[in-house]
Design a protein around this nucleic acid. Structure first.
Lengths: 313, 313
DNA sequence: TTGAAAGCGATACCAT
DNA sequence: ATGGTATCGCTTTCAA
């Protein structure tokens, strides 16, 4: 039993296919109550479900957004995806999500795949490169990463990082390390801003991956080097979690503040003081740009300090 | 500039559209080297990208699987999704992912949406109910949940839970609590099995949500009740993380073993001893069933104990 | 080896 | 208010 088509519905209801279409879509022509009733009945009896594929071909739009993240397992990206999905649903759009494992080739393939599927818009979360749109005319928004010719939405990294480090300074720390991943230049700048302003030296930097392993690795090094560091600012939640593990293992006390602010940072021990990315606001902006098809622009939202125990408060 | 179509490519290359199709798909007819070259050239120059929507309409298959999870932010589901995506990609399928926020109505809507898009198969991760396929003929696999008439893939919950609890018993614990979420009946059974066999009483049960909050809540209650409990088996990583937080806050020592085994459980403190769901194996089986379109069957894989510090080892 | 053309399911204009 | 029908982009059979 292959799927029921609109033709069968029309036949069963004794009307033309046009009428079925009018009923299903609520227009563009009016339909008599009697005919509408018969069509509805036919749809119910036959279990008809419109073929979105055919519809998309005809109308040229899928009302679908593609969303590509490097890693669905990263809680920040998961939060972002969730928020974007919700915001898009409110506007009647569906979001199709995939991830790339951080591999640029996979990223290219997924972009091509979604483009081939005629998505109406594309969201790239920290993409590794500018996408090859090959003449396709669709809105594209990069999240947490600036890309030439593409709209971008993100937090105010520099300002947020600065706030975080200022808080550590306020706690009286004199030697504050930075743990940062690739692409964290703005956060690094914010760290430097705060230290510079306070007349502290910005000389302990650990450059590692953005994940838990990276943070752990940085933690081991910090513990091993005995640089007199008493506090750390890390560029991601996950790094913070990794740091905590290294500090626990070594039995050292160290104040930590991180960027991002996902649930995982709230439930580790000690709970991490974070500078929280305004995920909901960012998602709303992403969807707005996609729906309205604005010209490329870069929008950054303030990130808010959420104080928990890891900073010493 | 609207997207380039196959017609334009054909015209530019001076061949028929059939030839373009043959070149793009590598068949079903052979094409002379000269013509192929001209077509390839035209595709490159024009920036042609086949319309997957139109192709799907014609061939009746999208080579796409839909994947629905209650929550993309749950690390277990994220791991699962990643693994399924990878396994599907190996077979030439694309996975389109969405989540439902655990809301049955949203779940129904997403199922309908994916069905309308003509997905070639559907994966439902811990669905809240049997999906309404309305006559659609496509393979459906439920993960971590049994559903009438639908294939299912999951870990051996009962056996895994038993192993976990046995390990706690081996450590000498006499009073072992259970923290469990809705739908955790099998895990509960495994807990009872182990306790019963050892002649211990199975009387401390906290029924809470599956998330971090649920675990935290359970932890607070366990700490408050002073039941002589010295160890806990929890039905999910997230619950374990929540428990840890409550125990830390109260300053109590408590052995913990949990089900799932995501990265988050490895990086919390103390690192959680887990019974790990064999995510990769499960993903491979899910995709196998989808691709081969087998008749509904229930497959369960052994879960492995991974010993870390939280059990006292 | 290649071209013409039918048809996938749905939309919406042009008639009636 | 309703029906007939051309059309969206692509695949593939049938003929040449």
């Amino acid at each position: 039993m292959s799927p029921v088509t609109r033709n069968q519905v029309a036949e069963y209801a004794g009307v033309s296919t046009a009428v079925v279409s009018y009923v299903v879509n609520g227009g563009p022509r009016a339909v008599s109550p009697a005919a509408r009733e018969r069509v509805l009945e036919a749809i119910r009896v036959l279990g008809y479900r419109p073929n979105a594929t055919a519809r998309a071909l005809k109308v040229g739009s899928t009302r679908t957004f593609g969303l590509i993240t490097p890693d669905g397992g990263n809680p920040l990206f998961a939060e972002l995806a969730k928020a974007i999905d919700r915001a898009a649903a409110e506007r009647g759009y569906v979001v199709l999500q995939t991830s790339t494992d951080g591999d640029p080739a996979t990223e290219r393939a997924k972009v091509a795949e979604l483009l081939a599927r005629q998505v109406s818009g594309l969201v790239l979360v920290t993409p590794s490169e500018a996408p090859d749109l090959a003449g396709a005319e669709l809105p594209v928004v990069a999240v947490n990463r600036m890309l030439p010719g593409v709209s971008s939405v993100g937090p105010r990294y520099r300002e947020g990082a600065r706030t975080a480090v200022e808080h550590l300074i306020w706690h009286g720390h004199k030697r504050i390390a930075l743990v940062v991943g690739a692409g964290g230049a703005e956060r690094e700048q914010g760290w430097r801003d705060a230290l510079g302003e306070a007349g502290l030296s910005a000389d302990v930097v650990e450059r590692v991956g953005f994940g838990r392993e990276g943070g752990y690795e940085a933690g081991l090094r910090l513990v091993g080097r005995r640089t007199g560091v008493t506090a750390v600012f890390a560029s991601s939640d996950l790094q913070g979690v990794g740091l905590l593990r290294a500090f626990h293992e070594a039995g050292v006390e160290m104040a930590v503040v991180v960027f991002d602010g996902t649930p995982e940072a709230e439930y580790c021990w000690p709970p991490l003081t974070v500078v929280r990315q305004p995920v909901e606001v960012m998602a709303a902006e992403v969807v707005r740009q996609l729906v309205e098809g604005v010209v490329p622009e870069a929008v950054a939202f303030p990130a808010e300090l959420v104080v928990r125990r890891s900073c010493g408060c």
